[in-house]
Computed example of a mutant assay.
Amino acid sequence: MANEISAPSADGVPSDGENVTVAGMNAYLSRPPEASTGGMLLLPSITGISPQLREFADGLAAAGVTALSWDIWRGRPGSDDPAQMETQFQWASELDDESSLTEMGKLLDHMFDELGCRQVGVIGWCIGGRFALLFGGRDSRLANVVAYHPTVPGSPAPNHTLDATEFTARIAGPAMMLYPGADEVVPVESFHRLQDALNSRTTGPSIAHVYPGAGHGFTARALHGNPVNKAATDLSWPQVIAFIRATTLV
Protein backbone atom coordinates (compact mmCIF):
# COMPACT_ATOMS: atom_id res chain seq x y z
CA MET A 1 0.00 0.00 0.00
CA ALA A 2 2.91 2.38 0.72
CA ASN A 3 3.89 2.63 -2.92
CA GLU A 4 0.37 3.74 -3.78
CA ILE A 5 0.48 6.96 -1.79
CA SER A 6 4.02 8.00 -0.97
CA ALA A 7 6.04 10.43 -3.06
CA PRO A 8 9.18 9.07 -4.74
CA SER A 9 11.94 9.20 -2.15
CA ALA A 10 15.69 9.34 -2.45
CA ASP A 11 15.65 5.61 -3.05
CA GLY A 12 12.72 5.88 -5.44
CA VAL A 13 10.07 3.40 -6.46
CA PRO A 14 11.65 0.33 -8.10
CA SER A 15 11.76 0.90 -11.85
CA ASP A 16 9.52 -1.70 -13.43
CA GLY A 17 8.80 0.14 -16.66
CA GLU A 18 10.28 -0.14 -20.11
CA ASN A 19 11.29 2.06 -22.99
CA VAL A 20 8.87 1.62 -25.89
CA THR A 21 8.26 3.05 -29.35
CA VAL A 22 4.81 4.45 -30.19
CA ALA A 23 4.08 5.80 -33.67
CA GLY A 24 7.79 6.26 -34.19
CA MET A 25 8.22 8.12 -30.90
CA ASN A 26 10.17 7.10 -27.83
CA ALA A 27 8.14 6.70 -24.65
CA TYR A 28 8.40 5.16 -21.20
CA LEU A 29 5.68 2.68 -20.24
CA SER A 30 4.97 1.45 -16.73
CA ARG A 31 2.08 -0.96 -16.21
CA PRO A 32 0.36 -2.21 -13.05
CA PRO A 33 0.93 -5.80 -11.91
CA GLU A 34 -2.68 -6.57 -12.79
CA ALA A 35 -4.68 -5.48 -15.83
CA SER A 36 -6.10 -1.98 -15.53
CA THR A 37 -8.42 0.14 -17.65
CA GLY A 38 -7.20 3.38 -16.08
CA GLY A 39 -4.26 5.28 -17.52
CA MET A 40 -2.28 8.51 -17.30
CA LEU A 41 -0.21 10.26 -19.94
CA LEU A 42 2.82 11.85 -18.27
CA LEU A 43 4.29 15.09 -19.63
CA PRO A 44 7.74 15.67 -18.12
CA SER A 45 9.34 18.81 -16.83
CA ILE A 46 12.37 20.27 -18.54
CA THR A 47 14.40 17.32 -17.24
CA GLY A 48 12.60 14.97 -19.67
CA ILE A 49 12.22 11.24 -19.02
CA SER A 50 14.64 11.42 -16.12
CA PRO A 51 15.09 8.94 -13.26
CA GLN A 52 12.59 10.85 -11.13
CA LEU A 53 9.99 10.98 -13.91
CA ARG A 54 10.32 7.20 -14.23
CA GLU A 55 9.72 6.93 -10.50
CA PHE A 56 6.53 8.97 -10.79
CA ALA A 57 5.39 6.69 -13.63
CA ASP A 58 6.23 3.56 -11.68
CA GLY A 59 4.45 4.97 -8.63
CA LEU A 60 1.29 5.43 -10.67
CA ALA A 61 1.59 1.87 -11.94
CA ALA A 62 1.96 0.66 -8.35
CA ALA A 63 -1.31 2.48 -7.63
CA GLY A 64 -3.03 0.49 -10.39
CA VAL A 65 -2.81 3.00 -13.24
CA THR A 66 -1.06 2.45 -16.58
CA ALA A 67 1.48 5.24 -17.11
CA LEU A 68 2.87 6.27 -20.50
CA SER A 69 5.43 9.08 -20.58
CA TRP A 70 5.93 11.45 -23.51
CA ASP A 71 9.53 11.91 -24.61
CA ILE A 72 9.58 15.69 -24.64
CA TRP A 73 13.16 15.76 -25.99
CA ARG A 74 12.55 13.29 -28.82
CA GLY A 75 15.36 10.87 -28.16
CA ARG A 76 17.74 13.22 -26.40
CA PRO A 77 18.48 11.93 -22.89
CA GLY A 78 16.53 13.27 -19.94
CA SER A 79 18.49 14.20 -16.85
CA ASP A 80 17.93 15.47 -13.30
CA ASP A 81 21.47 16.93 -13.30
CA PRO A 82 21.30 20.72 -12.72
CA ALA A 83 24.41 21.04 -14.91
CA GLN A 84 22.25 20.08 -17.91
CA MET A 85 19.70 22.81 -17.25
CA GLU A 86 21.11 25.37 -19.67
CA THR A 87 21.00 22.87 -22.52
CA GLN A 88 17.48 21.84 -21.58
CA PHE A 89 16.31 25.46 -21.56
CA GLN A 90 17.63 25.79 -25.10
CA TRP A 91 15.70 22.69 -26.14
CA ALA A 92 12.58 24.09 -24.47
CA SER A 93 12.83 27.27 -26.56
CA GLU A 94 12.66 25.11 -29.70
CA LEU A 95 9.45 23.26 -28.82
CA ASP A 96 6.39 23.90 -30.96
CA ASP A 97 2.98 23.86 -29.26
CA GLU A 98 1.00 22.36 -32.13
CA SER A 99 3.43 19.57 -33.02
CA SER A 100 3.81 18.70 -29.33
CA LEU A 101 0.04 18.37 -28.92
CA THR A 102 -0.08 16.20 -32.04
CA GLU A 103 2.45 13.83 -30.49
CA MET A 104 0.45 13.66 -27.26
CA GLY A 105 -2.67 12.82 -29.26
CA LYS A 106 -0.90 9.86 -30.86
CA LEU A 107 0.18 8.59 -27.44
CA LEU A 108 -3.37 8.96 -26.14
CA ASP A 109 -4.67 7.02 -29.14
CA HIS A 110 -2.20 4.25 -28.31
CA MET A 111 -3.39 4.07 -24.72
CA PHE A 112 -7.00 3.64 -25.82
CA ASP A 113 -6.37 1.40 -28.81
CA GLU A 114 -3.45 -0.77 -27.71
CA LEU A 115 -3.05 -0.64 -23.93
CA GLY A 116 -6.61 -1.47 -22.96
CA CYS A 117 -7.33 1.87 -21.26
CA ARG A 118 -10.87 3.19 -21.04
CA GLN A 119 -10.28 6.24 -18.85
CA VAL A 120 -7.09 8.22 -19.42
CA GLY A 121 -5.95 11.48 -17.88
CA VAL A 122 -2.89 13.67 -18.27
CA ILE A 123 -0.39 14.92 -15.71
CA GLY A 124 2.46 17.32 -16.32
CA TRP A 125 5.18 19.08 -14.35
CA CYS A 126 6.49 22.61 -15.06
CA ILE A 127 6.69 22.88 -18.85
CA GLY A 128 4.70 19.65 -18.92
CA GLY A 129 2.15 21.24 -16.59
CA ARG A 130 1.52 23.96 -19.17
CA PHE A 131 1.20 21.31 -21.87
CA ALA A 132 -1.26 19.37 -19.68
CA LEU A 133 -3.52 22.44 -19.58
CA LEU A 134 -3.21 22.91 -23.33
CA PHE A 135 -3.86 19.25 -24.09
CA GLY A 136 -6.74 19.18 -21.63
CA GLY A 137 -8.37 22.02 -23.53
CA ARG A 138 -7.69 20.36 -26.88
CA ASP A 139 -8.80 16.75 -26.28
CA SER A 140 -12.17 16.13 -24.62
CA ARG A 141 -11.44 12.40 -24.22
CA LEU A 142 -9.29 13.06 -21.16
CA ALA A 143 -10.69 11.82 -17.86
CA ASN A 144 -8.71 14.38 -15.85
CA VAL A 145 -5.98 17.02 -16.04
CA VAL A 146 -3.29 17.47 -13.39
CA ALA A 147 -0.91 20.44 -13.70
CA TYR A 148 1.96 20.50 -11.23
CA HIS A 149 3.48 24.02 -10.97
CA PRO A 150 2.68 24.76 -14.65
CA THR A 151 5.16 27.09 -16.36
CA VAL A 152 2.83 29.85 -17.53
CA PRO A 153 4.86 33.05 -17.05
CA GLY A 154 3.39 36.52 -17.09
CA SER A 155 4.86 37.18 -20.54
CA PRO A 156 4.61 34.15 -22.88
CA ALA A 157 7.81 32.78 -24.37
CA PRO A 158 8.18 33.39 -28.12
CA ASN A 159 7.38 29.76 -28.92
CA HIS A 160 4.26 29.71 -26.70
CA THR A 161 1.83 30.24 -29.56
CA LEU A 162 -1.20 28.89 -27.70
CA ASP A 163 -2.80 30.68 -24.76
CA ALA A 164 -2.77 28.40 -21.71
CA THR A 165 -5.52 30.39 -20.00
CA GLU A 166 -7.82 30.09 -23.00
CA PHE A 167 -7.25 26.34 -23.25
CA THR A 168 -7.66 25.85 -19.49
CA ALA A 169 -11.18 27.25 -19.74
CA ARG A 170 -11.98 24.54 -22.32
CA ILE A 171 -11.01 21.55 -20.16
CA ALA A 172 -14.03 19.25 -20.00
CA GLY A 173 -13.11 16.89 -17.17
CA PRO A 174 -12.01 17.21 -13.55
CA ALA A 175 -8.86 19.28 -13.15
CA MET A 176 -6.27 19.73 -10.42
CA MET A 177 -3.67 22.49 -10.40
CA LEU A 178 -0.87 22.79 -7.84
CA TYR A 179 0.85 26.15 -7.40
CA PRO A 180 3.91 27.02 -5.28
CA GLY A 181 3.35 30.19 -3.28
CA ALA A 182 6.95 31.37 -3.79
CA ASP A 183 7.04 30.58 -7.51
CA GLU A 184 9.80 32.76 -8.96
CA VAL A 185 8.90 31.88 -12.57
CA VAL A 186 5.10 32.13 -12.61
CA PRO A 187 3.67 35.23 -10.89
CA VAL A 188 0.62 34.82 -8.71
CA GLU A 189 -1.38 36.86 -11.24
CA SER A 190 -0.82 34.10 -13.81
CA PHE A 191 -1.99 31.48 -11.35
CA HIS A 192 -5.12 33.53 -10.62
CA ARG A 193 -5.89 33.77 -14.34
CA LEU A 194 -5.59 29.99 -14.68
CA GLN A 195 -7.69 29.44 -11.58
CA ASP A 196 -10.37 31.81 -12.84
CA ALA A 197 -10.36 29.93 -16.16
CA LEU A 198 -10.93 26.65 -14.34
CA ASN A 199 -13.70 28.16 -12.24
CA SER A 200 -15.40 29.61 -15.32
CA ARG A 201 -16.23 26.13 -16.60
CA THR A 202 -19.78 24.84 -16.33
CA THR A 203 -18.67 21.20 -16.20
CA GLY A 204 -15.70 19.48 -14.60
CA PRO A 205 -14.80 19.94 -10.92
CA SER A 206 -11.77 22.12 -10.19
CA ILE A 207 -9.22 21.64 -7.41
CA ALA A 208 -6.46 24.22 -6.86
CA HIS A 209 -3.75 23.76 -4.24
CA VAL A 210 -1.37 26.48 -3.06
CA TYR A 211 1.81 25.58 -1.17
CA PRO A 212 3.10 28.72 0.60
CA GLY A 213 6.87 29.10 0.54
CA ALA A 214 7.43 26.37 -2.05
CA GLY A 215 9.39 27.28 -5.17
CA HIS A 216 8.81 26.62 -8.84
CA GLY A 217 9.32 22.96 -9.66
CA PHE A 218 9.08 22.01 -5.99
CA THR A 219 8.61 18.32 -6.80
CA ALA A 220 12.15 18.10 -8.26
CA ARG A 221 14.33 16.13 -5.87
CA ALA A 222 17.23 18.50 -6.63
CA LEU A 223 15.22 21.22 -4.86
CA HIS A 224 14.44 19.18 -1.74
CA GLY A 225 17.35 20.70 0.15
CA ASN A 226 14.68 23.28 0.91
CA PRO A 227 12.44 21.43 3.38
CA VAL A 228 9.40 23.44 2.25
CA ASN A 229 9.69 21.96 -1.25
CA LYS A 230 10.02 18.43 0.08
CA ALA A 231 7.08 18.90 2.44
CA ALA A 232 4.95 20.22 -0.43
CA THR A 233 5.85 17.17 -2.53
CA ASP A 234 5.18 14.73 0.30
CA LEU A 235 1.78 16.32 1.00
CA SER A 236 0.64 16.77 -2.59
CA TRP A 237 1.58 13.46 -4.21
CA PRO A 238 -0.78 11.22 -2.16
CA GLN A 239 -3.64 13.61 -2.97
CA VAL A 240 -2.76 13.58 -6.66
CA ILE A 241 -2.71 9.78 -6.61
CA ALA A 242 -6.14 9.71 -4.96
CA PHE A 243 -7.52 12.17 -7.54
CA ILE A 244 -6.11 10.11 -10.41
CA ARG A 245 -7.51 6.85 -9.05
CA ALA A 246 -10.93 8.43 -8.49
CA THR A 247 -11.11 9.70 -12.06
CA THR A 248 -9.53 6.83 -14.03
CA LEU A 249 -10.34 3.64 -12.15
CA VAL A 250 -14.09 3.85 -12.69
Rank of each mutant, 00 (worst) to 15 (best):
M1P: 11
V210Q: 08
L194V: 09
L53G: 04
D80V: 11
I244D: 00
A132W: 04
C117T: 12
E34M: 12
M85W: 07
E94I: 08
D234R: 07
T202K: 09
S206M: 05
I72K: 00
W91Q: 15
G129C: 00
T202W: 06
V13H: 12
L194K: 05
D113G: 02
G173W: 02
L223K: 13
S100L: 10
G116W: 08
A169V: 07
A7E: 01
G64P: 08
P77R: 13
R130Y: 00
S155W: 11
D80H: 08
L68W: 09
Y148Q: 09
G17Q: 05
P205K: 11
E114V: 03
E34R: 13
R74L: 13
T219I: 11
S45I: 02
P8T: 03
A83S: 15
P187E: 07
N226M: 12
V240H: 01
D80W: 06
D196Q: 14
S50Y: 04
A164S: 14
N19D: 14
E103L: 05
F89K: 14
S206L: 03
E86H: 09
V146M: 00
D16E: 14
T248R: 04
R118P: 02
V152W: 09
G124A: 00
G129H: 00
P82I: 12
D81L: 13
D163F: 08
T247S: 12
I171T: 00
T151M: 13
A232W: 01
R130Q: 01
H216M: 03
G12W: 05
A214Q: 03
H216S: 03
E4S: 13
R193W: 05
N26G: 15
L41D: 06
L107I: 14
P174Y: 05
L249Y: 02
L178D: 06
R193C: 08
P205N: 11
E86D: 15
G217I: 01
S36Y: 09
T168L: 06
Q84S: 15
A57Y: 00
T233Q: 13
M176A: 04
F89D: 02
S36T: 15
V188S: 07
V186C: 10
W70E: 07
A63S: 14
P238V: 09
D113M: 04
F135G: 08
A157H: 09
P33M: 08
S69Q: 11
D58C: 10
L198M: 11
M85I: 13
V186G: 10
H160G: 04
E55Q: 14
R76P: 03
L235T: 14
H216Q: 04
G213P: 02
A214H: 02
I72W: 00
T151A: 14
A157W: 12
I49C: 06
S6V: 11
F167Q: 13
V120E: 03
A182P: 02
L42Q: 04
S99A: 10
A63M: 10
S45K: 01
M1S: 15
V65N: 08
L178N: 07
T161Y: 10
A23R: 03
T202L: 09
P238E: 12
F89E: 05
V152A: 14
G204W: 04
Q88E: 15
H110T: 06
G24Q: 12
